[in-house]
Amino acid sequence: MSPCRSLSAATLSWLVAQSAATSPISVKVHPDVYAKLTDEANPEWHQVTLDAAQKNIQFTTL
C-alpha cells in the first residue's frame, strides 16, 4: 500500500456513503489526511469523520 496524502474530503465522503459494511471497518490514511479528518475546526473534513462513525467506520493513520 502506498500512502496518499492528497485524498480529498469528497473522495472519503463518497467511500463512507457507499459503504454497505455490516461489521466495523478501519480505513488507514496518510497522517496529513488523518489530521484533517480529526480537526474539528475544519467542518468539511470533520463531517466525513462524523458520517463515518454513524456507519461504524473508523479512520486510522499509517
Results as ranks from 00 to 15, higher is better:
60 T>E: 15
28 K>Y: 14
29 V>F: 04
36 K>D: 04
16 V>A: 05
32 D>N: 11
47 Q>D: 12
61 T>F: 06
22 T>H: 07
30 H>W: 10
22 T>C: 04
32 D>G: 04
15 L>K: 05
42 N>Q: 12
35 A>G: 07
14 W>D: 13
60 T>H: 00
41 A>W: 04
62 L>K: 11
57 I>R: 02
11 T>V: 07
34 Y>D: 05
11 T>L: 08
46 H>C: 10
11 T>E: 15
5 R>Q: 13
15 L>I: 09
29 V>P: 03
21 A>Q: 14
3 P>L: 14
33 V>R: 02
60 T>I: 15
42 N>W: 07
41 A>E: 13
48 V>P: 07
46 H>K: 08
50 L>A: 13
33 V>A: 03
18 Q>C: 09
12 L>K: 03
15 L>F: 10
3 P>S: 11
50 L>F: 00
43 P>N: 05
13 S>Y: 03
43 P>M: 05
61 T>W: 01
17 A>K: 13
11 T>P: 00
25 I>V: 15
38 T>R: 14
11 T>C: 04
60 T>N: 06
32 D>V: 11
9 A>T: 02
8 S>G: 10
54 Q>P: 00
26 S>C: 12
13 S>T: 11
60 T>W: 01
37 L>Y: 01
60 T>M: 09
42 N>K: 07
58 Q>D: 03
23 S>F: 07
47 Q>L: 11
45 W>T: 01
24 P>R: 12
20 A>T: 15
24 P>I: 04
41 A>P: 00
30 H>Q: 08
7 L>A: 09
61 T>C: 05
27 V>G: 00
34 Y>G: 02
14 W>P: 00
32 D>Y: 07
58 Q>W: 01
19 S>E: 04
40 E>N: 03
40 E>M: 08
26 S>H: 11
44 E>L: 08
9 A>N: 09
35 A>C: 01
2 S>P: 12
61 T>H: 06
22 T>A: 09
7 L>D: 01
45 W>Q: 02
4 C>W: 09
37 L>P: 04
61 T>I: 06
51 D>N: 14
62 L>G: 11
39 D>A: 12
22 T>K: 14
17 A>T: 06
56 N>P: 00
56 N>T: 12
31 P>R: 07
49 T>I: 01
6 S>E: 14
25 I>G: 01
15 L>N: 02
38 T>E: 12
31 P>S: 13
5 R>S: 15
51 D>G: 01
56 N>A: 11
55 K>T: 10
11 T>F: 10
9 A>I: 00
15 L>A: 09
15 L>S: 02
7 L>N: 06
28 K>V: 08
41 A>S: 15
22 T>N: 13
2 S>L: 10
53 A>M: 10
20 A>F: 05
8 S>Q: 05
26 S>M: 11
56 N>W: 06
